[in-house]
Structure formats: C-alpha cells, structure tokens
Amino acid sequence: MITQLLIILGAALILVGFWGVLTRKHIVKIIISFSILDTGIHLIMVGIGYIKDGSAPIIDQEMPVSRLAGNVVDPIPSALVLTAIVIGVAVTALMLSYAVQLYTFYKTVSIEQIKELKW
C-alpha cells in the first residue's frame, strides 16, 4: 500500500516537474521543476525497492540467504537513488550556474527571451 502511495506520489511529482518545465518561463523555476522531477523519480525508485515490514538487507543469522526474497528491502534501488541524487545535484548546480551566466549576458530570466540561436 505504502509502496503504491510512494509510486503515485512520485508519479505526481514527475508530472508536476514536467508541467513546470513546460510552462514556467522563469529559468530558475524551470530548474526547480527539474529538481521536483528528479525527486519524483527518486521516490519511485525507492518505492520500487521497498517491501512492507521488510528488514534492512543485511545478511546475518536471522536473515540467511534463503529467506532474503520478499523479506528484506531491495538494496539496489536505494543505492541507485543515492547515485541519482548526487548526479541530480550536480546537474542542478550546473543549471543554476548557467542561469547566473545567462542573466549576466541576457539580462533576463525569461526563457522566451533567450532565443538568439535558431533555425
């Protein structure tokens, strides 16, 4: 149940993110939308790995290899999420620095004003 909730929430965030990317004109808002989008994806990832009442994926006597399936939370999504978050942060940082530079050059934060390259 909670998994589904997580996934639905994640999906909702993804949609919000896409909506933001497609509709907001402010560069920084677009960047924020990307962050939301990322968060949504991360939530889904976590949700997919999560198992209700599952324990931590540590193999010991209480949790021998034979009982692993279905009883522990899948560790891989969590690991992936961590990597994804790091990458997301890096991208967001890059985007923000781009936003700063764009503002210095174009004196605007509206993405509609920044289209000198075309055709």
Binding site: I27, V91, L94, M95, Y98, A99, Q101, L102, F105, Y106, I114, K115, E116, L117
Partner: peptide
C-alpha cells in the same frame, strides 16, 4: 553569450 544559451538548452 550564445554558448551559454545553447548549453542551457542542451541541459
């Protein structure tokens, strides 16, 4: 200037 614009779109 243009490189920043292009880079942002690329991003």
């Amino acid at each position: 200037k243009h490189a920043y614009e292009a880079g942002f779109k690329y991003l």
